[in-house]
C-alpha cells in the first residue's frame, strides 16, 4: 500500500489526475456538443438527400438565388446572399467577443469579461432580429411548413436568367408555381432549430453576464463558466457556417 502511494504516476489513466486535463463540466459540454452536432448534421444531411431526390423532377428545387434576395429598405432590388452574409458577419463578430470574454476571464479581469459578454449578447440579439425579418419575408411570400409557393414558371426563370446584383426585379403571383414542400418546411425546421439554439445561447449568456456583474466568478476565483458557455456559443456559430453553406450558397 505504501509502495503504491509513493510510486510516481506515469500513465495518463493510472489515476490521481484528470486524464483529459479538463474539468468535469467542460468535458460534459463537449460530449453534449458532439451529440448536438449529430442532431444538426442529421437535419442537414436529410435536407441534402431530399434535395438530391428532386433532381429531374417537374417541380425542381427552387434556386435560393431568387428566394432569399431581399435586403431591408431595398424593396424590389435583386440582392441575393447579401443579407445572410451580414448575418454571418454578426455571428462571427459575436463569436470573437465571446472568445475575448474567455480570454479576459483567464486573466481574471471581471470588468472586461462583463464588457465582452454584453457585446456577445447584443450580437446574438441582432442575429435573431435579422432572422425574424428573414422569416417574415419568407412567410409573406408564401413559405409555409406544409406548403410552398416557392417555385417559378419557366418564363420567370428565363426572365431571371440574366439578373445581376442590384437589378430591379418584381415577380408577380403568376410567376410563382407550387414547389417542393420540403424546401419550405426544411427551411423553417433547420433555421428554426438553429435560431432556437441562438435564442437559448442568448438566455444562457444573459444569466452568466448577470453573474459576472454580481461578482460570482470573481469570488469563486476562476471563470470556468465563461469557457463553458463560450463552447456552446461557438458551436452555434459552427452550425451557422454549414446552414449558410447548404441553404444559401449551394
Amino acid at each position: 500500500m505504501a509502495d503504491l502511494q509513493t510510486a510516481p504516476i506515469s500513465s495518463t489513466w493510472a489515476g490521481g489526475r484528470s486524464p483529459f486535463n479538463v474539468s468535469y463540466g467542460k468535458l460534459m459540454m463537449w460530449i453534449f456538443l458532439l451529440s448536438d452536432a449529430f442532431t444538426f448534421s442529421s437535419l442537414l444531411i436529410g435536407y441534402g438527400a431530399i434535395r438530391f431526390s428532386y433532381a429531374g423532377s417537374s417541380t425542381p428545387w427552387p434556386s435560393p438565388d431568387l428566394v432569399f434576395n431581399h435586403f431591408p429598405f431595398m424593396h424590389g432590388v435583386h440582392l441575393p446572399l447579401l443579407f445572410v452574409s451580414l448575418m454571418t458577419f454578426i455571428l462571427i463578430f459575436s463569436s470573437v467577443t465571446m472568445v475575448l470574454a474567455v480570454e479576459a476571464g483567464q486573466r481574471k479581469s471581471n470588468k472586461e469579461v462583463a464588457k465582452y459578454m454584453l457585446l456577445t449578447i447584443l450580437g446574438g440579439v441582432a442575429f435573431l432580429s435579422c432572422q425574424a425579418w428573414e422569416w417574415t419575408q419568407f412567410i409573406n411570400e408564401g413559405g409555409r411548413l406544409d406548403s410552398n409557393m416557392f417555385n417559378f414558371t419557366p418564363e420567370a426563370y428565363e426572365k431571371a436568367k440574366n439578373l445581376k446584383l442590384g437589378d430591379h426585379v418584381h415577380f408577380t403571383a403568376a410567376d410563382h408555381i407550387p414547389g417542393p414542400v420540403p424546401f419550405a418546411s426544411l427551411f423553417f425546421i433547420v433555421t428554426g432549430f438553429h435560431g432556437f439554439h441562438v435564442f437559448s445561447g442568448v438566455i444562457i449568456n444573459l444569466v452568466i453576464y448577470l453573474n459576472v456583474l454580481r461578482g460570482t466568478y470573481a469570488r469563486r476565483g476562476h471563470y470556468e463558466m465563461i469557457e463553458k458557455v463560450g463552447l456552446y456559443w461557438h458551436f452555434v456559430d459552427l452550425v451557422w457556417v454549414f446552414v449558410f453553406t447548404f441553404y444559401y450558397l449551394i
Binding site: L34, A49, F52, S57
Partner: peptide
Amino acid sequence: AIIFLSYFVWLLMLEGDYVSISKY
C-alpha cells in the same frame, strides 16, 4: 463526428440519387 458524418453523407446522397432516378 468524422466517421459518422462521412458515412452518413455517403449513404444518404446515394439514397437521394436513387429516389430521383427511380422517380423521374
